[in-house]
Design a protein around this nucleic acid. Structure first.
Lengths: 342, 342
DNA sequence: CAAAGTGACGTAAACGATTTCGTATATGAA
DNA sequence: TTCATATACGAAATCGTTTACGTCACTTTG
């Protein structure tokens, strides 16, 4: 059923039917009802493509997900993030277009999205330091919001981020207050902006407390369970092993736990662990009492907020870049305790 | 840059330019090259919306991801699956449209996708037994392929699935050969078709070996780490506790490991564990020697294969439903061993 | 009472491609 | 020379909407 057929059946012009359905004032309430009823009966919805052509809007948002070519790893937070964003989109009549792309050819994807006018805006995932995508998107004039930030980029742009630095400040402080001095960090890939900020938060707090950072206690890599495991195993094998570990994700923390237990140690007693927790739906950190002490911030909420910002940005093209910094909550769980006397 | 501008600049008609770019024979090689060059120079790509309108094809595939309203849980395999499917799409010039939808209003989403002509076909995720979506999609005439199958649905339809039954047959057989008689199963939600098949595979093998299934050793629920943990903890607390456990996902297995270790037992010695492994990129099951003995099947490959089938289906509307059954590999790892003498 | 609104609807031109017919020129055959 | 046949290109319709202008019949208003 299309507009022409519907209008023919109603004995009205396409114009009137269109106006009736889109809530324009110049149509009487009587006919509007009549039109609405007929539309419902035939399950008429305007063709997105035709509508898009006519209005010049795509009514769609693009998400470009980079997949590292080296490891083929896809960030597990991404599912929950788009679940959040998706809610906002469907509530506003937008669709979500997904492009999975290896990090080599990202530029082309953005250009293509613009050239083909497939989307009204895009979400930038996984920003790296000095991320070139921000300049690119500004250049080609495609509205965007970044999930995270890009240190080193000086032009203003819109973003939603967790206060990673503060979160890792607090986590480190918490451990130091418990008497820990040998604190390791198992982080995401260097180059990823969030990893950079977390590392800074960690380092600053150590030095502020007169603790010299030990390079042997600092690892960064793809955030897989295996990486958490091997990193922890290696650190525990040191003659001067850490009494506490901080990890950048729950998945890493699971690997950490495996290594700790394999070494015959007890988590929370021999080795304390604090992780960052994105509140992934399938990785809930326990019920009332968290399993891991964690800096917690819902990535799903971030998705919701970011989508709202982007839609607002698109609705008002002359708006200034918006930013939102989400604070992570420190949840004390069962994985931390006073530093042991070695 | 659009077709009109491009053709004006070239001094050709829109017809010729369009034909040149789409590889039609009735255009000389000389002009074709000239057109191609100009198009490249201006980075011209046809507007998807206009093209879609003119051709009647959307050049897009819809993925409708159900999110359980109760637990807001999103299946973690979904990221890797669409990564696989996405490869196929972009190689064929298709886009991927994502709808995250609570399992209440799924029907409306499919109808809307059809009515608005947003997609040429859809992928059905997470089929349940007697899944009503298959009948619905047949009724509204939207091409589709199911990731998994729906027991109880008698009409033919296209699907790609893992041989879940066989996989769990083999896993159970393997454990029985090691001398285990008390074998537990921690499964996905009843009602999910894959869980049903895995349960059948498990049960059949037990009874075929003269082992009576104990309801206390059978749990099903949302496949979170926590569910794996609590299920295992409860089973280990039984006076007649299991010596082996089978789990339906790596995430469940991580919870299982936590419970086993918390109980002071050793995995692979006191309690053997076999899990199904979808080869999620961030949850690799170890390197050379797998951590968990596992029935392994790449969900990413499944995504690739399924996308190919769907595109073929769309290209040839009169084709018969295609099906593909992927066999899981049994990988022997460090989590299984001979049954202990209790 | 004439002019000016205004309420309710219609005509037709976009939007940016593809595609169905034509058409003009060159080539070969009769 | 004339007719048929390619070859290379163009005019205009089409896809399904929205929307800038009209139009026409009634009120209001001065």
């Amino acid at each position: 059923m299309n507009l022409k057929q519907l209008s023919l059946e109603l004995g009205l012009s396409q114009t009137t039917v269109s106006r009736a359905l889109n809530g324009f004032p110049e149509v009487s309430e009587a006919t509007r009802n009549r039109v609405q009823l007929a539309a419902d009966r035939h399950q008429y919805s305007p063709s997105t493509r035709a509508k898009g052509l006519a209005t010049g809007k795509a009514l769609a948002i693009g998400h470009v997900i980079p997949v590292s070519t080296k490891h083929e790893t896809m960030n597990p937070i991404f599912g929950d993030f788009i679940a959040g964003a998706g809610e906002t989109y469907s509530r506003n009549g937008y669709e979500m277009l997904l492009s999975i792309v290896d990090d080599q050819s990202e530029d082309d994807v953005y250009r293509a999205l613009k050239a083909r006018r497939s989307v009204d805006g895009v979400v930038v995932h996984g920003p790296r330091m000095d991320d070139p995508r921000i300049a690119l998107l500004n250049e080609i004039g495609l509205p965007f919001v970044v999930h995270g930030r890009a240190s080193g980029v000086t032009v203003p742009y819109s973003w939603v981020d967790v206060n990673n630095r503060r979160a890792f400040n607090r986590a480190a402080d918490f451990l130091i207050d418990l008497g820990h001095r040998r604190i390791g960090l198992i982080n995401g890939l260097e180059g990823m902006d969030f990893a950079h900020r977390r590392r800074n938060g960690y380092m600053d707090t150590l030095t502020a407390n007169g603790i010299a950072a030990d390079p042997a206690l600092l690892r960064s890599g793809e955030m897989t369970e295996e990486f958490g495991y091997t990193s922890t195993r290696d650190m525990l094998a040191l003659r001067d092993r850490p009494t506490a570990l901080m990890t950048s994700s729950m998945i890493l923390a699971m690997g950490t736990r495996r290594a700790i237990e394999e070494a015959g140690l007890t988590i929370g007693r021999d080795v304390s662990v604090i992780t960052h927790d994105d509140e992934l739906s399938y990785l809930r950190n326990g019920g009332d009492v968290p399993i891991f002490t964690a800096t917690r911030s819902s990535v799903r909420d971030a998705g919701r907020r970011l989508a709202e910002m982007l839609l607002a940005d698109i609705a008002n093209p002359f708006s200034q870049p918006q930013t939102e910094l989400l604070e992570a909550e420190l949840m004390v769980g069962q994985s931390t305790g006073p530093a042991p006397h070695l």
